[in-house]
Design a binder for these strands. Sequence first.
DNA 1: ACCTGAACACCGTTCAAGT
DNA 2: ACCTGAACACCGTTCAAGT
Lengths: 205, 205
Amino acid sequence: MRKTASRSAALDADVIIEAALVIADEEGLDSVSMRRVAAELAVTPMALYYHVEGKEQLVDLMADYSLRALPEIDVAAAWDTELERHFIAFHRLFVAHPAVAEVTSRRPLEGPTATRVGEQILQLLTAAGFGDAEAVAVFVALFNYTVGASLYRLSRHRPLEHRLANVTDEATPISRRLRDRFVVAGAEEQFVDGLRRVIAGYRPR
Amino acid sequence: MRKTASRSAALDADVIIEAALVIADEEGLDSVSMRRVAAELAVTPMALYYHVEGKEQLVDLMADYSLRALPEIDVAAAWDTELERHFIAFHRLFVAHPAVAEVTSRRPLEGPTATRVGEQILQLLTAAGFGDAEAVAVFVALFNYTVGASLYRLSRHRPLEHRLANVTDEATPISRRLRDRFVVAGAEEQFVDGLRRVIAGYRPR
DNA sequence: ACCTGAACACCGTTCAAGT
DNA sequence: ACCTGAACACCGTTCAAGT
């Protein structure tokens, strides 16, 4: 049953994207190769190229596909709490799918889903009284903080082999004392606390 | 002369790191391979492994090496302007060396230089009256915002081939109107404006 | 229209060997 | 101590061919 379903699934872009996302979530983006995805789908590597331009595009498609899980935005709601709510969702998405955070930090998100989400956030801000330039400034500032905080948290939660290779063991006292605090700084509450402060830095004219 | 100098330079970690940084700055981190670095040094790929553990460590060493260019911190200066000054330097370093920004976003910086810089920033903050937890919170928030903003700026300044592959041409009116504003949002002034607002969100108790 | 097979030009790294 | 050479198990992608 299940076997038949997965085997007989006609090869198309979505099937390829989903298989790639499974690999990325389980083993990291580095393990996503055209050959590996093909093997997972019991197909020749070159079969993928009929549905997808290449690895670069596949990775972009993975990101946009994942963004579909973001909640809808109420453009009529209070801008500050709505932004807080939405960027927390962003953060959770990135933490759940490290590959998406990685792609987001490397390239502008310009797929259909990313575009739609961006539109809604800008509508929310302009409806709240922000001018065009200010709306973009708020959006980008929150986006940057969120991406940075997500990458920070991910970098502290990965297995030790992925950490810096040449750790100095003769760390000075203050860093020893604060070392665990830096790990705590990756917790969601710390992200939310900072997010609120960033939002509070902006007001409609 | 020059030829002799570069050819006769004894192979050691620093020489390897410098060669790798040149490649990274000119062609991107993806072009940095052990084989390519070796070729640039007119040496066998395996010769590198005598001085460096592997590619992972080389990349980590590249990041820490670059951080040496950061300015010294005056721990007795006003904490807010000093932080602003230093994170602007961070931002400029990331923009000048995209590979360093990339590595920084992927792994915790735990090399000797990174550790020293971190110590100084924490000393600055504790000297200003912040408690341990608050000092780390301010540090990490600013760090995350800066890394995110740097990656944002880099992602908008890369050649078009590196941009998202499947751009939708039927973008809605509002995104067309704001599209160039998103590019402008990557400018340094916009980064500094946001940085000031984030800093303003914190005060010593 | 959709997929396969063979091939090309790459990777990082291990292992044994040279000097 | 420092480097080379050959080999292994991988990559992404092109190109011609099958059905």
